[in-house]
Design a protein around this nucleic acid. Structure first.
Length: 883
RNA sequence: GCCCGGGUGGCGGAAUUGGUAGACGCGCUGGACUCAAAAUCCAGUGUCAGCAAUGACGUGCGGGUUCGAGUCCCGCCCCGGGCACCA
């Protein structure tokens, strides 16, 4: 019987659709399982083979969990705001909503053709007003929340205590004070501006080379009024929360690095000749004795105060030059350090010595206090700077582990040492501080305490994470529910949703304003009191909609509230979240931030949204290059007996693995694969390629391999002549239960490649046997069905069922059947396996040893050798040690 | 520079976490079926030597621990990802 996937696959997809087989009911009596895919951006290019990888994995688990009695929530939707639809609108005038709808239709059709068991009644779309109404609503919650460091919680802004000093200054001061505490605020911000996209981008969207992640164009600095979110207030919570999450360690590390917590101290330095102090942040207060100069960043507010008249011109020029530089120029490591002397000196609090204050752009205003004490002997950046400008290098830490040569250099101030050691030259009994003889951690403790006792400084914690730039000069995004009044007041428009106006032109407005600035009618508002105002013309970034979508699936059509809290309590948190590693920081950190705020406000019931996270690896493709490394398009490559040649030049080519790309002509379209081999084959191949979390190259021959397997399954199991009513043969029964056991544990551990291998092993066994019982055939069909659901349903129906296989109970492996009487011991001599010896499993170590020694084969290996000992690991191995 | 991954046959990858290296699949070789081809089926397939039995070698490189190392430890090399003057 032929394997007619082209008939059975549409048949079952139609069945699932019309019977709403995968509709999720809010049945609280069952244990729930919420399994989520990162929803896609529906691009015009349609699905690529990377999408079905994660989707198939979650689909297998969804089906497996249903068969294990779980109430499974497994939804899909569209992250549909974004630049491409808007750019297309600029070129063609087509409204982005139309483009978006078309693309979603394509994606939905393609996803449905893969037989994925989503509950389509819960489909969501971030561009749907019924959805973004609630994105705007969350923005309002953020705006109306402040973070209380005491209780470490976000609280309603109405509960913000106003200090009496502020209160006395009048209502304007109070308003400003309140604004300074809101989690969302509107302010001037130094932002990255992409002149090609005519929009700002967040720090995270700018690549290391200073180009915009989306378009590759160089970005520049601009000062613009923008919306920002105070995510650093949640830094500590976001950091602590990571510990209990079942996430890949690498992702957690990346988030930890991004948050960038450091412990150190703030120290106040007196300034010679002015009655002001310069505050620095350092993680190495212990090296205070080695501080030989200070540096402030060019943007430091005290720059003007500090500079002496004779240095004023120099310093001003330097600050001006620095302001023109991009961060890229300023941070490039290869670059030489620059700086100018202010003419002013600070007083080192432990030595009492005068140390020069410099301005240099290697110190950043955005971190710590924007000023540092420089310890060139024990900080490599300071060392580099000191060498260039001939500043003194005082070694105060005798290096612990350096070789003698290096140690001499360090002690002489000719090299830098940042590791542990023993302090020298670090005592001032007059000031009551002695570090000599201590090590680094003792030193840090001693100095910090000394500073605190004298009111000169205090222990401080710093974070690298910055405020999140939350507005874009775009049309196709969520409008802010905000009105700017002519008198400068900002207020919220709580009449949600605030809709996007229809535009004739999607070009950005004057001076870098969003295209919304062109929508005059929409833009201008008049208040009840006749006051005039303008709507916010910026829109939210794409992150906004994806920050909370997992919550809307819970109750996607609710018109009155974001979701029903009872449903939220049942379904949350997400039990398993699968998606690409490219979202390791941004999406996942932003989501966690919003979720924690919503948790503090009592809107959601869990502190963390995603209990377990798994990253699927990227699917790559084979590509070819010449001896000189030039890439060759795949259509110009000829395969001759496993060697590759250029069809035009005849040159032998080297096979490499690279990202799929149009230019290399090695992009695989899932539609073509479904057409040629069927959805079950595509699913199976994507899972069989290798471990889910690893990057791996696509090979068409591999699809053929799994397609062969499904053909063999179909040929054998759909031929009722092979299926008997007799009792199953013990050997086959054992093979079956071995497969159940392996497939079960492999699904639990997301090891789908080896699960499929186990299915293949059993199938090979069954075919070799020639006959299996109906019971066996049904059981095999059950464990095959999550992987190849169409064929699973088809066989299930053939065996007499008249309903879906999707909710049939998952088989249990019978351990009794797997027990062995005999074990075939590998017998090694000095660790080399020589022969096998079958012995009863219940043999004692002594009995095994005797059996080995008396075995005739052993004699051969003992000839001319001494038997030293016999190592027996019951049920594992025998090793005979000879000499 | 720092932080994570990863290097196993011709290829994708297995290996119960210290116990038979190479499961499963692709490819290749030989055979069956066929007028022939495709498809399918059967057998073989880490490398070297040998007709074979068998032996030697073998998990990026160099050391070490152990009765025994792909797996653990020390020192390197290469590939991929992230961060990068954060004091």
């Amino acid at each position: 019987m032929d394997y007619k996937f082209w008939e059975i696959e549409p048949k079952w997809q139609e069945f699932w659709d019309s019977n709403k087989t995968f509709k999720t009911r809010d049945d609280f009596s069952k244990p729930k399982y919420y399994i989520l895919d990162m929803f896609p951006y529906p691009s015009g290019a349609g699905l690529h083979v990377g999408h079905p990888e994660g989707y198939t994995a979650t689909d297998i688990i969804s089906r497996y969990k249903r068969m294990n009695g779980f109430n499974v929530l497994h939804p899909m939707g569209w992250d549909a705001f974004g630049l491409p639809a808007e750019q297309y609108a600029m070129q063609t005038g087509t409204h982005p909503a139309i483009t978006t709808r078309k693309n979603c239709d394509t994606f939905r059709r393609q996803i449905k053709s893969l037989g994925l068991s989503y509950d389509w009644d819960r489909e969501i779309n971030t561009t749907d007003p019924g959805y973004f109404k609630w994105t705007q609503w969350i923005f309002i919650q953020l705006y109306n929340t402040w973070y209380d460091p005491e209780s470490k919680k976000g609280l309603p802004i109405s509960e913000l205590p106003i200090p009496s000093v502020i209160e006395e200054m009048g209502p304007k001061a109070v308003k400003e004070y309140v604004a300074s505490k809101r989690l969302a605020y509107y302010d001037n911000a130094q932002v990255w501006w992409c002149s090609s996209c005519r929009t700002v981008c967040a720090n995270e969207e700018v690549l290391t080379d200073g180009s915009h992640e989306k378009c590759g164009h160089q970005v520049i600095r601009r000062n613009l009024k923008q919306w920002l979110l105070r995510i650093p207030h949640y830094a500590e919570r976001l950091l602590e929360g990571l510990d209990d999450l079942d996430w890949p360690e690498g992702v957690k590390d990346m988030q930890r690095n991004w948050i960038g917590k450091s412990h150190g101290a703030e120290v106040d330095f007196d300034i010679d000749g002015i009655d002001q102090k310069l505050r620095v942040y350092t993680t190495r207060p212990d090296t205070l004795f080695g501080a030989t100069y200070m540096v402030i960043s060019p943007e430091h507010p005290m720059a003007e105060t500090l500079v002496t008249p004779e240095n004023e011109e120099n310093v001003k020029e330097y600050i001006h030059t620095a302001s023109l530089k991009s961060d890229l120029d300023r941070t490039e490591l290869a670059k030489e350090k620059t700086g100018v002397f202010t003419g002013r000196y600070a007083i080192n609090p432990v030595t009492g010595g005068l140390i020069p204050i410099w301005v240099a752009d290697y110190v950043l205003m955005g971190y710590g206090t924007g000023a540092i004490m420089a310890v060139p002997a024990h900080d490599s950046r300071d060392f580099e700077f000191a060498k260039k400008f001939s500043l003194p290098v005082n070694c105060i830490l005798d290096p612990a582990a350096a070789d003698q040569d290096l140690r001499d250099k360090i002690l002489a101030g000719d090299a830098c040492w940042t590791e542990d050691g023993v302090y020298i030259n670090s005592a001032n009994s007059e000031k009551g501080i002695v570090l000599n003889g201590l090590n680094k951690s003792e030193g840090i403790r001693t100095v910090t305490q000394w500073l605190e006792e004298r009111g000169l400084g205090k222990a401080t914690v710093n974070f690298k994470i910055r405020d999140w730039l939350f507005s874009r000069q775009r049309y196709w995004g969520e409008p802010f529910p905000v009105i700017h009044w002519e008198d400068g007041e900002v207020s919220l428009d709580e009449n949600l949703p605030v809709m996007l106006p229809t535009l004739e032109k999607y070009e950005p407005g004057e001076g870098g304003e969003s295209p919304l600035a062109n929508a005059r009618e929409w833009l201008e508002v008049v208040g009840a009191d006749g006051r005039k105002g303008r709507r916010e013309t910026n829109t939210m970034p794409q992150w906004a909609g994806s920050c909370w979508y997992y919550l809307r699936y819970i109750d996607p059509t609710n018109k009155d509230s974001i979701f029903n809290p009872e449903l939220e309590q049942y379904w949350m948190p997400v039990d398993l979240y699968v998606g690409g590693a490219e979202h390791a920081v941004l999406h996942l950190l932003y989501s966690r931030f919003w979720h924690k705020v919503l948790f503090d406000l009592g809107i959601v019931s869990t502190d963390e949204p995603f209990i377990k996270l798994y990253n699927q690896g990227m699917i790559l493709a084979f590509a070819y290059e010449t001896a000189t490394g030039a890439k060759v398009s795949s259509d110009l490559v000829e395969d001759r007996d496993g060697k590759f040649f250029h069809t035009e030049t005849g040159e032998e080519l080297h096979q490499i693995v690279a990202k799929m790309s149009k230019s290399l002509k090695n992009v695989v379209n899932p539609d073509d694969v479904v057409q040629k081999y069927g959805a079950d084959s595509l699913r199976l191949y994507e899972m069989f390629m290798g471990p889910l979390d690893e990057r791996k190259p696509w090979a068409d021959s591999g699809v053929k391999g799994v397609s062969n397997f499904l053909n063999r399954v179909n040929r054998f199991f759909s031929d009722l002549q092979n299926i008997t009513d007799e009792k199953e043969d013990p050997e086959t029964e054992k093979a079956l239960h071995l497969a159940i056991k392996k497939v079960t544990s492999d699904i639990e551990n997301l090891k789908f490649n080896t699960a499929i291998s186990a299915l293949m092993v059993f199938n090979n066994h069954a075919i070799k046997k020639g006959k299996v019982s109906l019971e066996t055939a049904k059981t095999f069909t059950l464990i095959l069905s999550p992987f190849a659901p169409h064929l699973g349903e088809e066989l299930w129906q053939l065996y007499g069922a008249n309903d879906t296989i999707s909710y049939e109970p998952w088989p249990k492996a019978d351990e009794e059947l797997l027990k062995e009487d005999m074990f075939e011991y590998p017998v090694s001599f000095n660790g080399k396996m020589r022969f096998k010896l079958a012995l009863p499993v219940d043999f004692s170590v002594n009995q095994v040893e005797e059996a080995v020694i008396s075995n005739e084969k052993t004699g051969k290996y003992l000839e001319g050798k001494n038997l030293r000992k016999v190592v027996v690991v019951p049920g594992k191995i025998i090793n005979v040690v000879i000499s």
